[in-house]
């Protein structure tokens, strides 16, 4: 099976997982869900690292990659921390 087709299999099956997992999320946590998925989509940082860290590339790609790493890092750090802040608010009244 060609690699692109394998990728398509993985993609479609992941869509099903997403579908079932997300319907279970309680409506009161929809804002934290958006913040968390936002942080998780910071996974593009992996792509950014691969672009930036390739040895022997022209500086243009490295600089583009640097900005991609920077933006994705804002997402990863900002997203997880703000989600944590919100969830702490939901948790603290469990007396």
């Amino acid at each position: 099976m060609p690699e692109t087709l394998v990728a398509l299999y993985i993609f479609v099956l992941s869509c099903f997982i997403g579908y079932w997992v997300i319907w279970g999320v309680t409506p009161s946590l929809h804002t934290p869900l958006i913040a968390l998925t936002n942080a998780i989509s910071g996974i593009v940082i992996v792509g950014a690292l691969l672009v930036t860290g390739l040895e022997g590339v022209g500086t243009t790609a490295e600089i583009i990659g640097f900005f991609a790493v920077l933006l994705a890092s804002i997402n990863v750090f900002g997203g997880f921390l703000v989600t944590n802040r919100m969830l702490a608010m939901f948790n603290k009244k469990k007396k």
Binding site: F11, I17, T37
Partner: peptide, 26 residues
């Protein structure tokens, strides 16, 4: 997810699909 296809990176594809579906369902 599209970035994952470009880079042949399965993790990006999986995560992209999860997030994509999450937003779509909301």
């Amino acid at each position: 997810a599209a970035t994952g296809f470009t880079l042949q990176n399965n993790l990006l594809i999986i995560v992209g699909a999860l997030v994509g579906f999450s937003g779509a369902i909301l």
